[in-house]
Structures are given as C-alpha cells and as structure tokens.
Nucleic acid binder design. Structure first.
Lengths: 198, 198
DNA sequence: ACCTGAACACCGTTCAAGT
DNA sequence: ACCTGAACACCGTTCAAGT
C-alpha cells in the first residue's frame, strides 16, 4: 500500500486536469491557480510544472479533453437516432447544446482565442473534427436528396454557425427567456430550411 | 496649464479603459493587470480602485463600451444601405463580422460568461439591444413580405445564432481557410433561405 | 474628490537539490 | 523520473494618510 503512491496518489497529470475542470466549473476561469491545484492535491507548488510547462499548457490540455468529450457525445447521439437528416440534425443539435450548457466555462476555454502556438495545432485539429463530423452528416443527406447540392463548405457553414452560435448564446445566458423556451426547435427548423433542396 | 491636470492627465477612468483595450488587443486578456495600467498611466497602483471597485468591474465596463460601439457600427451600416431585406441583412452581417475580427478579444470579453452580478444586468441589456435591432429588421421585412411569418423570436433565433456563431468562429480563427473565403456570402444566402416566405 | 504609500496575502516560474 | 523548498518578480485589494 505504501509503494503504490510515491509522492502523491498516482497520476498527477490526470489529477490536475480533473481538479482544474472542477474549479473551472464551480468558480470560473479566474479562480484557476496552479498553486491552489497543487495544494488541493497535496503536492508542492512546483510539481505541476513537471507535467505542464506553464499555466497555458494546462488550459490547452483542458480544452483538448473538452473536444474529445464533445466528439464522443456527438458520436453517441448520432448512433442512437434514425437515418433521416432531420432526425440526425436534431440529435446532433441537442447533444451539442446539452454539452454547451453542462460545460459552459469549458466551452469558453475550448474556443478561447488565446492558445499557446504549440497547442493550437492540435486544438484546431480537434475543433475541426466536429466540423468534419457535421460535413459527413451533410454529405450523407445530400446523397439521400434531403439537402441541397453545393460544396460541403458552402452548405456546412450555415449549419456550424447556427449550432455554435446558439450553443454559445445559450451557454452564456445571452438569450431572453422567451427565445430560450422554444429556441432549439425553432433553430432546427430554420437550419432545415436553410439546407433544403431547391 | 498646471491646474487642468491635478494628479494625472484629466480623466483617469477613460484613460484606464482606453489603455486596457489596447493591451487586451495587443497582448490578450491574461496580460491585463491593474498595476501595469496604473504604471503606464503614471499613477499609483491604488488609483484605479477609485474608478473601478475591482478588476472585474473594469472588464465589465470594457465589455459595455464594446456593445455600445457595436450598436453604433450596426446602425451606421444599416443607414447606408438599401431597403430590401437581402441588402440590409448583408450590410448588418458584414458590419458584425468586421467588428468581430477587428475586436476579437473584446468580443470574447463581451460574451464572457463571468460578469459581476451588478454589471450583468446592464450588460445583458446591451447584448439584447442588437438582438432587438435584428428583430426590428426582421419585423420590417415581414411587413414587406420578404420574410416568412411567425413570431420575431422564432424567426430571429436562427438569424442571431448564425451571425453570432459565424462571427465567433471567424474571430477565433476556428474556420478552415476553404470555408472562410466565401463564407460570409454563403452564410447570408443560407440565412435568406432560412427566412424566406413559405 | 482624488490620489499615495505601505502592507497583506496571494500569484507563476525557475532552479538547485533531494529521493 | 518525479518531486521539494527557496527565491524572484510579479499580482489584486485594502486602508490610513495626504492634498
């Protein structure tokens, strides 16, 4: 029992990320401090630097885990639904908005402007993965004749923008209550109109 | 000449906001420090607290100036264009995206989740002003028969979401280059389809 | 009214040193 | 490899005191 944990409880890197996400969710990004994380995990304040070269590196890693979880959520949601574009879009939209509201601060971090140059490559790849996911969805629907012709980009840009914009506005609590109530259903109907064949 | 400025150069509050926006733009939000602002303006580090009760209050005030400038920009853009919905939408979309790219960090701040409770009322009022602006635009277009019937909210939600989402994605550099090139034109066409009468 | 100066309790980061 | 302890140069905030 005493050889299992050498200095701390096993995997400091993972523990830091987990704890960081908790405080991010509970007390916001401004409250995130490396020293406090170290204190909470019973480790010296210099220990985190073994795993993250600086604070930004930890934030970048946190954002990356967010994208991975988002991709999983989306995939799971799309597997559990029907084949029609309307059903798949609705499922995807619900999953994205649910993730956004359940992880509002993390979503902010994921799409934050300031990322370290080293991490930004990995991060933008991750952010473009769900764009690709949506593009696949659109491509399939085009082949089924449920979405208008045109390049994936030209049809997709509206879908990404609508979904991301709505999720951001809802997560940030920037929509008046009248809009929020029926909002997602209205949005899906609007997206379907924007995608409908001519 | 020596009675004009007592301790500093006249209006510390305005000077703080101006300087803060400069460093926000040039070095990002993490680089914003009250002490450095005070140093730059040749004033003691405790002076800012006379005008902003804490750092968050300064950030909130900065976000508010952003909303005011955005509203001005939008109004100006809409005054210089034609009467058709297509023209007005295009003008508004261009203005919003231009503002977003020219003030990317500020936009992040404006829509940040974490605002002080006292300021959030004023801020959400400001954020809902441009939503109202868009709703007016939509209402006018409905009366002209250029936009489908339905409540302003149900038609508007798609327009806000699309515009805000696209602006955020572009400002944050989260769109692949292929998409960015023709993106705004594609987006406007998509929004028009989503709004078109049945 | 508006600002200063000192004080307090925090930060992030680095680096020799320990195991 | 992984972590500690001390050190350095910063922070935000508060508060008596000055003009």
């Amino acid at each position: 029992m005493h050889t299992r944990r050498r200095y701390h409880h096993g995997d400091l890197r993972a523990a830091l990320l987990t704890r960081a996400e908790e405080t991010l969710r509970e007390r916001g990004p401004a409250a995130l401090s490396l020293r406090e994380l170290a204190r909470d995990l019973g480790v010296s304040h210099a220990a985190p630097s073994r795993h993250f070269k600086d604070k930004q590196a930890l934030l970048d890693a946190l954002a990356l885990t967010g994208f991975h979880r988002l991709a999983q959520t989306m995939t799971a949601a799309l597997e559990e639904t029907g084949e029609s574009f309307a059903e798949r879009l609705r499922a995807g939209a619900h999953a994205y908005v649910e993730f956004a509201t359940a992880n509002a601060e993390l979503l902010d971090l994921m799409y934050a402007i300031k990322h370290a140059p080293e991490a930004s490559e990995e991060l933008s790849a991750a952010s473009q993965r769900w764009i690709a996911q949506m593009e696949n969805l659109i491509g399939d629907a085009q082949r089924r004749g449920e979405v208008r012709d045109g390049s994936l980009e030209s049809v997709g840009i509206g879908v990404f923008s609508s979904l991301h914009g709505y999720a951001s506005l809802v997560a940030g609590d920037h929509l008046p209550p009248e809009v929020r109530a029926q909002g997602l259903d209205d949005l899906v109907a609007y997206i379907l109109r924007g995608c409908a064949p001519e």
